Computed example of a mutant assay.
Amino acid sequence: MTKSIMQTADRVIAATYKRFPIVLKRGQGCTVWDTQGRKYTDFVAGIAVCNLGHAHPRIADAVARQAKELVHVSNLYYTIPQTELAQLLVKNSFADRVFFGNSGAEANEAAIKLARKYFNDKGQPQRSGIVSMEKSFHGRTMATLSATGQEKIKKGFDPVLDGFSFVPFGDIEALKAAIDDRTCAVMLEPIQGEGGIRCPAPDFLKKVRELCDRCGVLMILDEIQTGMGRTGKLFAHEHDGVTPDIMTLAKALANGLPIGAMLATETVAAAFGPGAHASTFGGTPLVTAAALETLKMIAGEGIVDRARTTGDYFKDALKQLKLKHHCILEVRGKGLLLGIQLDRLADELVPVLMEKGFLVNCVQGDTLRFVPPLIVEKNEIDALIRCLDELLK
């Protein structure tokens, strides 16, 4: 069956992913099994998506209950789970308003549109430029890849959209020089995930906030990968004590179901009136029921604190590994968003680790990324560390 599934998929699905030669069939907690019964400890979690692990019974029950009641009616009508989810997001964040979409790219599209609409409504339509960061990743739609600071993402899709400029991540002087009277927003990730698990200096986000205030531009934080407890705070910008004007979420918001959210202050969100933006499937009752249950657990049951303490344990173990293996150049990250940069191609280790029973992935060619479910146990981390120790010899 395994070979047949892979052959069929390769024939009928667009070849936009280079897939590994396994067919995953079942998951439970931090473990997944393939069609041949082989077991893997999952340090990818759907790319930082399944923060509560696979097949969580409370999420499954929420989806089952809602599927029997109401799945989709469009945003022409009020629905209960969407309203309750928005209310809980507002309660647990800086924001006053929420817009729901289906993905991180959609959330970032909404953020880009809102920033431009905000200044247009203020009588300043010339203020449409957005300054982003080099090595950033904001999505693969035409607008979000235009906002992404990686040329490999844009290759073959020229011309990209105008109005985006880039500065080195963490360079406040370069950012200061890039902002002018045509700039509407600065858009960045608190930690660059796809960029190699890169953290800026501890005061960088505060300096960006101060600069945005001084120049009268909006601060957009892309928390699609860093949000929902991943870094040991519900949202990563909370580590720095800053408040953005706009924030985007997706990935872990519904623990695997497709949803994106753009959150904004009342002043900024007011630029989105009826007809300004829309999404047919944005925030359906089914998906928001799953997200509501996810957020209740992550925000209210010690999951965030656990991510912080377990992340510290994991990072310390990786640092000890670095002392033993000089091929590890750097250990980076926060909470359970961690990576090790090697002095060689790291992607060669990914299939070897898979054979040993661990799913990890590689970013930027030389960095192994570890984004397990936030419920990962220390013994599961220890097993991965032992395997890495053996392989790196």
Rank of each mutant, 00 (worst) to 15 (best):
K322N: 07
T310Q: 04
L337I: 15
L337P: 00
H325A: 09
D316E: 12
H326Y: 05
E330Y: 06
A307H: 05
E330G: 06
E301Q: 07
R306N: 13
D312T: 15
K315S: 03
Q320R: 15
G333E: 06
L323T: 13
D312N: 11
L337H: 03
T309R: 09
K315W: 05
K334W: 00
L329K: 14
A307D: 02
K319F: 07
L323Y: 07
L329Q: 08
L337K: 06
K322F: 13
G300M: 05
L318K: 12
R306Q: 11
I328L: 07
F314V: 13
G302W: 07
L337G: 00
R308F: 12
L329M: 09
L321T: 13
H325T: 13
L329Y: 05
I303D: 00
T309F: 12
T309G: 01
K322G: 10
L329E: 10
E301G: 01
K315C: 05
C327Q: 14
G335A: 06
V304H: 04
L318C: 08
H325K: 12
T310V: 10
A317N: 11
L323F: 13
Y313L: 06
C327T: 15
G333F: 05
Q320V: 14
D316V: 15
T309Q: 06
L329F: 01
R308E: 14
A307P: 01
L318R: 06
R306I: 03
Q320A: 08
F314M: 02
R306L: 10
K324P: 01
A307C: 05
G335P: 05
L321P: 08
L329R: 14
Y313Q: 05
R306P: 00
T310M: 04
G302N: 09
G335T: 00
K315E: 02
I303S: 00
V304G: 01
G302M: 08
K319Y: 11
G302V: 13
L321R: 14
L318D: 06
D312R: 12
K315I: 09
I303Q: 02
G311N: 04
D316M: 13
K319C: 12
A317P: 02
T309C: 08
L337S: 03
T310C: 07
G335W: 08
K319T: 08
L318I: 14
